[in-house]
Simulated assay, not measured.
Amino acid sequence: MSLGGPAFSPAVHLLLVAVATGFIWLGSGWLEESAEHLSAYYGLPAVVQGSIVVAIGSSFPELASVVVTALSGTFSMGIGAIVGSAIFNILVIPALSGLFSDGHLQTNRTVVYKEAQFYMLAVAVLVITFALAVIYTPDPGGSPLTGRLTRPLATLPLLLYALYLFIQWQDVSDYDALDAPAGIAVRREWLRLGGGLLVILVAVEQLVGSVDSLGQTFGVPEFLAGVTVVAAATSLPDLLVSVRSAASGNDVTSLSNVFGSNTFDLLVAIPVGVLIAGTMPVDFAAATPMFGVLTLATVLLFTLLRTDLVITDLESSLLLVSYAVFLAWIVAETVGATQFLRGV
């Protein structure tokens, strides 16, 4: 149970949000370092290391947010956190990675034509899954564009992620691994990975509880609170991993972590929440505009990556400006200046 009930003041909850975010950063640091060492020990290629091992590790806060919100009855906040985190990852992380890299942020055709395009497929499959929920399991007490996301429907994204893992496994089987570096204590790294997961889970539970209380105090819908505050806090590990990788010259790992994290979030995190809760409401009127923004952001990043296979400082600035525009729109939706999110 999270600390700080409804009787606590907004200032206390803001402090708890900051403290929880700090612990998410701490736990993610343990998790990412252990994942990196284990990847080196088992001889995984850079693309697989970034898109699977590091991506899943840095995406655990998003997964934890979905699990916590599913169990607490605020699943719309969890979905908002996933979508908001995906937009943050696509626009902010490559931009800051490009600015902190040694020169331009380099990419390659594997990232552009495999990781990026498979991620686009993941977005499309999740939208189709939501549409099937509205068509075949409509919510009798809701609007015509609401449905119930059931466990059978949740298996569709999971099956696609299984295909993604199979493709990555094929890459690993064709890869000539380097000799494992000396001095890696495998058992200690696995223990540190488990400790990082536990710290993240507890911190995310506190974060969700405080954000939910703040949202009720200031009249912010759960979905929008998830898109902004929870999404930014849970995306902090992805940001740190990618920026650190770019600063050390590992541009491929930096970018593949972005696409791998988003693919995991969309195809695994949301379905896991449904599998835990059994069934979850889906409001297509709110989900579709957000997925539209996510698609536009993905197309923008894909276009920038494909031009000479680099991201320049100017293109990084363009990505940051695009995210600022997105935040301005969310604020406009919150105060009622715009009403594109009909289901919120």
Rank of each mutant, 00 (worst) to 15 (best):
L156F: 13
L132Y: 10
L26V: 05
I56C: 14
I93P: 07
V54R: 01
V83Q: 10
E33P: 00
F88K: 02
P152C: 11
G147Y: 08
G27V: 02
G22A: 03
P61R: 03
F130P: 05
Q106S: 09
Y42P: 00
D102V: 07
T74V: 14
D139K: 11
A116N: 10
F23P: 01
S85I: 03
L31Y: 04
L105Q: 12
P157T: 09
L121R: 06
E62D: 13
Y41L: 13
H37D: 11
I93K: 08
V134W: 09
Y136N: 06
S59L: 03
E32N: 10
L121P: 01
P94E: 09
L31R: 01
G103S: 08
G84V: 04
E62Y: 05
A46P: 05
A40M: 11
S28T: 00
L153S: 09
F118Q: 12
P144C: 05
K114H: 13
H37E: 15
P45G: 02
S143Y: 04
I93V: 15
F75C: 05
T69M: 08
E115K: 07
V134K: 12
G22V: 00
E115W: 04
I79C: 08
F60M: 14
D139W: 01
G98E: 11
S65I: 07
G80A: 08
P45I: 00
Q106Y: 12
S39F: 01
V67D: 05
S76W: 04
E33N: 09
Y113M: 13
I24D: 03
G98Q: 10
R148P: 00
F60G: 01
T74I: 06
T150E: 07
Y119T: 12
Q106N: 07
I90E: 12
S85V: 02
I52E: 01
S85Y: 07
T150D: 05
R148N: 13
G103F: 08
G142C: 04
M77D: 08
L31N: 02
F88A: 14
G57L: 03
T150P: 06
M120K: 08
V48Q: 01
F23K: 02
F88C: 13
Y42G: 00
V54M: 14
